[in-house]
Amino acid sequence: MCALCGVLGGDGHWTDAAPRPGIFTRNTGPVERRRERMARVAGANRILKAYGLSLADWQGASYVLSTATGKSELVDSLAHLWPLAEKLAGRPCDPLDPGLIERLSREAGDG
């Protein structure tokens, strides 16, 4: 069940689309799915660091989003990551924020 919407059967988010002809997805098998989840956690943490948050995989089925002091929320998919991140951070998570863009650009330059 989707934790936010209360809808049975998951939310079928576009980043986790069910495999079928004509659809692009990395949700095609256990290895591919696991690899994508690891990349997603790493990518999300690069952004979430700016808000004092971190994301971890939970049993290959969900994610756990945590603050530095250990306050946590279970996250179903990317659709729910950002509203919960804003809730835990107590401020908007805006990808157009010049401060965030500056930080990500600097890190990319350093990396």
Binding site: A39, G43, A79, L81, P95
Partner: peptide
């Protein structure tokens, strides 16, 4: 384009805007 990075960006953009 890194698909994972694009997904993170677009979901974040659509959540806020």
């Amino acid at each position: 384009v890194d698909w994972t990075g694009f997904g993170l960006w677009l979901t974040m953009l659509l959540n806020r805007h």
